[in-house]
Design a protein around this nucleic acid. Structure first.
Length: 350
DNA sequence: AATGTGTGCAACCGCGTACCT
DNA sequence: CAGGTACGCGGTTGCACACAT
């Protein structure tokens, strides 16, 4: 029924940071009497604050079992997982992290995780690879710069921009991934009418094992056993465009310079929590949707390597790179895209 | 040393909803 | 059933501190 009049009618109540004395009063009162009605608590406890402020101070800071300090990597993974399913439902997410408040998680998301995901080229809202033009431009520019630096390296024997080959590779992978995302989401490129893509299955991620994923009705293995609604209903419906949790975790590990912990076997989790009866074994709902068809580029790569005999090249990346680098092919799909994205002078936000 | 800029986090604001009368 | 109240949630703000210039 609209906003509470609580704070409006309490003209003259103190705002801003709490003093240790105020904290002590609040703790003392609640430990003796419980909070009861938050509205009347300040008067009863002898505090010149509004009830809302008292509740917030208590729940976010003074509650005895509150856990403070840095979030662990496991905490981060749980938050990302939950966020991918629940969206910005911080209070729901907080229920899965004992001792952490919704406010703390929200702040941590906004100040740390969000930035990390953006750096990884993942949209923190959708948990999909970023497809916005600015990001593509950044990647494209990075590629251009690194190609230039490679040329300079060849010529002068050094790398004045300090771009390492693995960074270049990462940028290429991201750009490819984003281009594929564009294709899948917006039919940016009509694959079905592109003879080159049709004739070269290695270049076409939609034709794995000879099957056009667009034409199959096979559902991705969505394994969410909780009762919450999806915040992003469309997120797990596209097996072919999925950036799976494995991708995120792998990228995360790469970004952090570490490795994925052994206990984070998402396939295992998914396979063992496909029914409600398994929930008891795993207190957290199985949140990760994955497709056995299109889990990661590596999976794609291995699938293709096993089944494709039509191309002399061995890997997905080889063929993509060949396509992108093919100056004489006369097929302008990718050059157009890259030209489009390379006209920006925006700085690289890495 | 002084000033400017960026970052993290506690606290506030305002809305939606559950509950009570 | 309608109106009022209290609570909880998510978005946003502003302050304190760290770091850079």
């Amino acid at each position: 029924m609209g906003r509470s009049p609580c704070c409006e009618e309490n003209v003259g109540v103190k705002k801003g940071p709490w003093t240790p004395e105020e904290d002590e009063k609040l703790i003392d009162y609640i430990s003796k009497h419980g909070h009861g009605s938050w509205r009347t608590l300040p008067k009863r406890a002898g505090l010149n604050r509004c009830g809302k402020s008292c509740r917030l101070r208590w729940t976010n800071y003074l509650t005895p079992d509150i856990k403070r300090g840095k979030f662990s990597e496991e905490d981060e993974r749980i938050i990302i997982n939950l966020h991918s399913v629940l969206g910005n439902k911080w209070s729901k997410i907080a229920t899965h992290l004992p001792g952490r408040t919704d406010n703390e998680i929200k702040n941590y998301w906004n100040t740390h995780i969000r930035k990390k995901l953006l750096k990884m080229g993942i949209d923190p809202e959708t948990h999909k690879p970023r497809t916005d033009l600015n990001h593509l431009m950044s990647l494209s520019q990075l590629l251009g710069t690194s190609n230039l630096s490679s040329a300079m390296n060849t010529t002068w024997g050094n790398n004045p921009l300090g771009l390492q080959p693995d960074i270049t590779q990462l940028a290429k992978i991201q750009l490819l991934q984003n281009l594929l995302q564009l294709m899948n989401n917006y039919s940016f490129v009509n694959v079905g009418n592109n003879p080159y893509l049709l004739s070269n299955p290695n270049l076409n991620p939609l034709f794995l094992n000879g099957t056009n994923l667009f034409q199959t009705n096979k559902e991705p293995h969505v394994v969410f056993s909780g009762s919450e609604e999806y915040a992003n209903p469309g997120l797990y419906s596209q097996a072919q465009s999925e950036c799976s949790q494995q991708d995120v975790s792998k990228s995360w590990a790469d970004l952090e310079g570490g490795s994925i912990p052994q206990d984070t076997d998402y396939n295992k989790i998914s396979n063992t929590t496909t029914s409600r009866e398994n929930q008891a074994e795993n207190p957290l709902p199985a949140l990760v949707a994955f497709s056995t068809k299109m889990g990661t580029f590596n999976q794609m790569d291995s699938n293709i390597a096993q089944t494709s005999t039509e191309s002399p090249s061995n890997t997905f990346f080889d063929d993509w790179e060949k396509l992108l680098d093919d100056e004489t092919s006369g097929r302008s799909y990718w050059k157009e895209i890259l030209d489009l994205t390379s006209t920006s002078a925006s700085p690289i936000l890495w």
